[in-house]
């Protein structure tokens, strides 16, 4: 098994437990406090659903990029990666707009423990998205020059992981009310 792929899986495992710690803590508190449903009602499911869709689509492009890279077509892979970058950027921008509207409505990170968890969990995830976007851009630039094509697959694994975390954050933060 290629070393890089093994290493990325190790990264994924260590990230699973980081998010696992936050989410387990959140779920415990959420189940303990029925009253949080009042707070949770203020999150906007439609924005969350839109962001899920954006992430889904961006990782479709990562899959295409991986396929192109395996065929040795760096330019095509690079093009797909840039589309993923666009998806990730859209996700972050939408998130920023969403937070802006929530903060202006008075729901800040210190409003209640629900909002603390909301901003912490989503913020930690958003940081991972931002980091992913930066790495995607570097790899896209390298791939265009036909360099380090195996890295396309590696960033793909990481990007899917970020997507899977969002699959769980979406119901936890936006649907369960």
């Amino acid at each position: 098994m290629p070393t890089g792929r093994l290493a990325v899986w190790m990264v994924v495992v260590s990230e699973i437990v980081v998010f696992g710690g936050v989410l387990a803590s959140y779920i415990m508190h959420r189940l303990a406090h029925d009253a949080w449903s009042v707070q949770a009602a203020h999150t906007n499911m439609w924005i969350g659903a839109f962001n899920t869709f954006v992430l889904l689509t961006s990782s479709l492009f990562v899959a295409f990029a991986h396929k192109a890279a395996e065929e040795g077509d760096g330019v095509k892979a690079s093009n797909f990666l840039w589309m993923t970058v666009a998806g990730g950027t859209t996700f972050v921008i939408v998130k920023a707009l969403e937070w802006t509207s929530e903060i202006t409505a008075g729901y800040t990170i210190t409003s209640s423990t629900f909002w603390s968890f909301y901003y912490t969990a989503a913020g930690l995830h958003a940081l991972h998205v931002i980091a992913g976007v930066v790495i995607l851009m570097i790899i896209a630039m390298q791939a265009r020059k036909q360099m380090e094509l195996h890295r396309v697959e590696l960033i793909g694994i990481y990007w899917y992981f970020v997507e899977i975390v969002w699959f769980f954050l979406f119901p936890l933060l936006y649907i369960a009310k």
Partner: peptide
């Protein structure tokens, strides 16, 4: 270490 440190990092 990898499997146990995550929750504390989150903490």
């Amino acid at each position: 270490f990898m499997a146990s440190v995550g929750p504390l990092l989150a903490g």
